[in-house]
Design a protein around this nucleic acid. Structure first.
Lengths: 135, 135, 135, 135
DNA sequence: GTGGTCTAGACCACC
DNA sequence: GTGGTCTAGACCACG
């Protein structure tokens, strides 16, 4: 699992988690039957209260995205949301990219610098993924 | 002024206003020196309390986007007035980029596709700016 | 915490609180990481509305003096975290110095006497800091 | 006349004017019978509404500091405030200097830089005085 | 008319 | 318990 939280966006943390799990399910990154991290594990990873994770998982369960099985953990349900077409997935990202571009304008950051920053963060991200895989 | 609010998103109303004014300023829909609707007028238009608008405008003032003058009103500031250090500005954008990268990961969108999408949105943004400039 | 309010001065209450917290932080009466009274507690102590305290604390957060954590409270940040550009910082201080110079002019206090007074207050300030450090 | 306004201090502008005129009178910088600038002249100089100046002058008149003579202008009254002793005058400035020092601490501006900044502003001030005298 | 401050009291998200 | 947001309505300073 890989969740990135923004504590200052005003979006409730548990909804950020819900959205990211649903995205993973819709895109096929998570497949039916896949296990999710336990509440306490994810809470520790994200440095967030367990109640917050529990709330997100509960919300995901009522939405039929996952299934909580007592004692054995938490799994992605088979009849999840219908997988998103490639175009739809791009569209979602485009909205966020637009917001980044506006922000760059106000911070007086030019296009080239923005591209360079993207490369930097991508490299950083891949590095973190590798470390995660080794553990 | 064109501000559209989503009361169900969970995003604070005042932050929605901040984002949309910044967007208008960045795209050129609003130009430096342009007056914005008065606190009272916008509050009435959006059917929101005066204090909520005041909070949004105050936030925009601290971000250097607009200038509030007692008794006279509210005006768009010239760009290039960000009071932040360069390093801080990059850092802020990096946080947003990280969030985009994680979402791309959840949506199973690869690095190359992400780069291409950024170029597409940048082109689009510059195009919109040019159109505004011509009017 | 020791905050004293003057309701007749015409200075907004929330700014009086901001100034006094900054003073405590600068002199060492408050140390990095120290918890501040909760919004509710300080509001009750000062017999002021909760919103007023919240506004003061929010201002102090944007100035990099404290950190507000949802559900956990309010803590003094380490110094050296001013998010402003060096040039902007000098400019802010210059404005205050100009005001001092004009007041000196009105009080018929010459440049040399002003310099001497600055040295006296600086010595005094460093002395107070040292005393705090020893405790 | 030389008045320096701080529009963001939260202190009403008219009270800032009142205080500075009273200081000049108390220190002897202004003497009984001295003329003050007309309402409209001072309003123009300070880029402030004439009502604001009128309010300050009215306040000063009720406090017995000055006298408004119809058609001929505005003059400092003879039985003004008692002149301040040197020690008292220094004390007033000390309070403002303390606030500057605290501000410098938060802006991470060291003692030497502060001294340099004071010299710069003093030079600037004397320069402006000379220009004023030439007109 | 403008924005700024403050109060009183409500509801929410989070620990 | 914590801080964050929002409403409703009051008063002030300023143009």
């Amino acid at each position: 699992m890989l969740v990135h939280l923004n504590f200052k966006s005003g979006v409730p943390v548990y909804l950020q988690i819900v959205a990211q799990v649903k995205d993973s399910a819709a895109s096929g990154a998570l497949r039916p039957g896949d296990p999710l991290p336990s509440v306490r594990a994810l809470a520790e990873e994200l440095r967030v209260n367990r109640n917050t994770i529990a709330k997100a998982y509960a919300e995901l369960e009522t939405q039929g995205v996952l299934e909580l099985r007592q004692g054995s953990g938490c799994f992605l349900k088979a009849n999840g949301t219908s997988p998103l077409r490639r175009a739809v997935r791009s569209e979602r990202l485009a909205t966020e990219l637009d917001s980044v571009i506006v922000q760059a304008h106000h911070l007086q950051i030019g296009d080239d610098e923005l591209r360079a920053l993207l490369e930097e963060r991508l490299t950083d991200f891949r590095e973190r993924q590798r470390q995660r895989a080794e553990n």
